[in-house]
Simulated assay, not measured.
Amino acid sequence: MAKRVLNITIFLYCLIITNAQVFDIINYGAKAGGADISKALLNAWKAACTSSKPSIVLIPKGTFTLKEVYLLGPCKAPQIAITNQGSVVALPQPTSVKADNEWIMIQYVDHLTINGNGVYDGVGAKSWTLNREHCWNTTQCNQFPNNFGLHNLKHLTVRDITSKDAKSFHFIISDVQNATFQNLKVTAPENSPNTDGIHIGKSRQVTIKDSSFKTGDDCVSIGDDTQGVNITRISCGPGHGISIGSLGKYNNEKPVVGVWVTNSNLSNTMNGVRIKTWAYSQPNEASNMHFENIRMDNVGNPINIDQLYCPSGGCNMNMPSRVKLSKISFKGIRGTSSTPVAVNLVCSATFPCQGVEIGNIDLKFKGGDAQFICSNARPAFSGKQNPKINCR
């Protein structure tokens, strides 16, 4: 077969990774236009993974159907990339994916890059119709495939790609260390339930930057046992905002430590920046969480600590949350609220929030005066405060 000519993206990547080998899925039997490429992609991955040189798995320009794929390490290659220059399209049926509920699962790999300016289309419309009636009001969503499941990885880079119309989450990462997500475009309709942009759990040192999220659920959500998350220069909306939690639902959860959300914009989202813990929760802790220089445009509950979280009802609201929250700051947050309550600090009666700082807040409600609700917290205030302070 004639040697394929590399485009500028691959050429530049090869310059960065000296002596990189390219494993084009076309050379492993893939064909654009409808045939499933799962086997070809898996075989190209196996060849790249076992190479002794830095390797690139190439999905060239064109439209390719992918049923599902599980890409497993560890790899001999010191660095490995999946470079998609085309459009990879899932099967539309909600039950099309069988293995571990991930459309594309990658596990046990070090120094992985996912890039290439391509599109991953989860074709989620049929799945959303089965979740729409109950998913937003309960936690019992049908478990449909996530676009990407990224697990047990070290030194991960995901950049310059589009994740579109996932059946469920776009990216779910767990047990990942040192990850960067940059220049992503994540899109799903506002009425697509459970389509979180990126969910992070049990991970360390994760950066998300220079990216756009338009989803039917959280743009970014952060679960337990997570440390060192830096979210900066992102746009979020529509969607449910940026959330830490919910925490405290399960036994033996581990703390969240160190989250920074800065220099970002939220527009037409259901919530703004939110920390949520279950009412009558299991014990846990979350600390060192900071939100700074954030623009809100028509956002519901722009600043929200909710330690009475219970979306489906049935919780014992007389038993306060046992999640301890501390070292929290909200600074330089401005714009408009779509709800009367612009700042909502509802902390636990058993473990009041500790070390809360609020500075230079300017949030207006178009329907009248914005409100500030505060219970079981004693924030330290600085600079401008709009809405007016109301703490007890």
Rank of each mutant, 00 (worst) to 15 (best):
I8S: 15
T9I: 13
L12H: 05
C14D: 02
Q21I: 11
F23H: 02
G29V: 05
K31W: 00
G33N: 11
G33Q: 07
I37T: 12
I37Q: 02
S38F: 11
K39T: 11
W45M: 06
A47H: 07
S55A: 15
I56A: 04
I56C: 07
V57L: 03
V57C: 01
T63Y: 07
F64Q: 03
K67G: 09
E68D: 02
V69K: 05
Y70G: 05
L71D: 03
G73L: 07
A81H: 02
I82A: 01
S87Q: 14
P92G: 03
Q93V: 00
Q93F: 09
P94A: 10
P94V: 11
T95Y: 10
A99T: 14
V109T: 13
L112Q: 04
G116P: 03
N117Q: 08
D121G: 06
G122P: 11
C135Q: 02
Q143C: 02
N146W: 03
N146C: 06
N146G: 12
F148V: 01
L150S: 03
L153F: 08
D160Q: 13
I161Y: 10
N183Y: 10
T187F: 13
T187C: 00
T187N: 11
N194F: 13
G197K: 06
H199C: 05
H199G: 14
R204F: 15
V206S: 03
I208W: 01
K209C: 13
K209F: 05
S212T: 14
Q227A: 11
V229H: 07
N230T: 13
C236F: 09
S243R: 15
G245N: 09
S246G: 05
S246K: 10
L247P: 06
Y250E: 14
Y250K: 15
N252M: 13
V256E: 06
G258N: 11
N268V: 11
T269A: 07
G272Q: 06
T277I: 02
W278I: 02
A279D: 09
A279I: 14
Y280M: 05
S287V: 03
I303D: 06
V323A: 06
G332Q: 04
S337T: 15
S337H: 09
V341H: 04
S348W: 08
A349N: 15
F351R: 11
P352W: 06
G359T: 10
I361V: 03
L363H: 02
K366P: 00
K366Q: 14
A370Q: 13
F372V: 02
I373C: 00
C374L: 09
Q385T: 14
